[in-house]
């Protein structure tokens, strides 16, 4: 499938960049003319993924977060969110709703559940001490 547009972003894992990241991704898909609900779904999923990098991947230590986005001819959008943090020991367990390793910080353990419910597909690749890559995929329907 042909890529019609792509972008790359990198920024330090500061929590103020959660808003920047989701707004930037929203701006990237704007010319697909998404509905408000498609836009809010993708923003929410990106927000969850970036928060995971900050809270879990880098555990407040800091590091860079990398986002790459692609828009395909058929209206599919993929957003890859990557950190070079500690990685996830057990991806399957981490993806269980309500599972969290940070209850003290009032994390609800819903990050992956929200990503899965708000996107068409979520892929997670993680290697301990190397980092984690989450790929979100969502189709933006044409409204003409």
């Amino acid at each position: 499938m042909k890529t019609v547009n792509e972008m790359k972003l990198s920024f330090p894992s500061k929590s103020c960049n959660e808003a920047f990241a989701r707004s930037a991704v929203a701006a990237f898909i704007m010319n697909l003319d998404p509905t408000l609900s498609e836009l809010s779904d993708l923003k929410t999923a990106v927000s969850e993924a970036v928060t995971n990098c900050i809270v879990h991947g880098y555990r407040r230590m800091g590091g860079m977060i990398y986002i790459s986005g692609k828009i395909f001819e058929d209206g599919r959008v993929t957003v890859k969110i990557r950190d070079k943090g500690c990685g996830i020991e057990n991806v399957e367990q981490a993806m269980q709703p309500l599972f969290t390793t940070a209850p003290d910080e009032e994390r609800a353990g819903l990050g992956f559940a929200v990503m899965q419910s708000f996107c068409d597909r979520v892929r997670v690749k993680s290697q301990q001490q190397k980092g984690t890559t989450v790929t979100l995929e969502k189709r933006i329907d044409r409204h003409d």
Binding site: R22, S40, K43, T44, T51, E105, E106, R107, A108, A113
Partner: peptide, 8 residues
């Protein structure tokens, strides 16, 4: 806008 931080 709200993500799962709202639940926490």
């Amino acid at each position: 806008f709200m993500d799962s931080s709202g639940v926490g």
